[in-house]
Nucleic acid binder design. Structure first.
Length: 194
DNA sequence: TCGATGGCTTGTA
DNA sequence: CTACAAGCCATCG
């Protein structure tokens, strides 16, 4: 695949203990195009970005973003500016992380789920006047900005936790760190509101 | 273009 | 409680 120099990506890594948090930022625009869930191995953290953006350079300049992401992971409430994310949809540009308006709309709704709360795939779809529950799940699965776009706060209608890119275990732990009460892999009702 | 595939949901047994 | 089928709809090859 030919590489468009306009889309050269800078990868920055923040290390916290044995976890590596990585972020990919387009050099020409300064926008984040990819965030990865923590890896226990630096190579994997880089690979997670560069699988999508093979033309990259490892630099420290966006380390603070990766650090903020690590703070979200630790359960802190972090104010993250949406404007830093590349959310443009342009079908003629294959390198943009968000491929459709549907995907963008779902990501934006997800972004608005407050800290410490959960919402279901179903209610998210219904907010978009759609019955595309499964398609919402697909958007979550492909979320380019995990943690910042808190797909870990999206759960199944029966209030069980559902799947997660980093595994159910990580999803449950993330929710607990935010104060969501769980019994096994099920959200306790009183902590749920739409 | 069209069928297969999902981080889903609901109903039935 | 579990299991399975059918329905749903955006995405991918």
């Amino acid at each position: 695949m030919p590489v468009n120099p306009k889309n050269k990506v800078i990868v920055s890594i923040y290390r916290d203990g044995d976890l590596y948090f990585s972020v990919g930022v387009v050099e020409s625009t300064g926008k984040v195009v990819k965030i990865s869930l923590p890896k226990t191995d630096k190579t994997k953290a880089i690979a997670d970005i560069t699988n999508y953006y093979p033309d990259f350079e490892l630099r420290d300049e966006y380390k603070d973003i990766a650090k903020d992401i690590s703070r979200i992971y630790k359960g802190k409430k972090v104010d993250f500016d949406l404007g830093m994310l590349e959310l443009d949809v342009d079908k003629s540009n294959r390198d943009l992380p968000v491929k459709s308006t549907f995907q963008k709309d779902v990501l934006l709704e997800t972004y608005n789920i407050p800290y410490g709360e959960v919402e279901t795939y179903k209610s998210l779809a219904e907010k978009l006047i759609s019955r595309a529950y499964r398609a919402v799940g697909t958007v979550m699965a492909k979320n380019p900005f995990p943690l910042v776009v808190p797909c870990h706060r999206v759960v199944k209608s029966d209030l069980t936790i559902g799947q997660y890119g980093g595994g159910r275990k990580m999803k449950g732990e993330l929710l607990k760190k935010e104060g969501v009460h769980l019994k096994g892999d099920k959200i306790i009702k009183k902590n749920y509101r739409t």
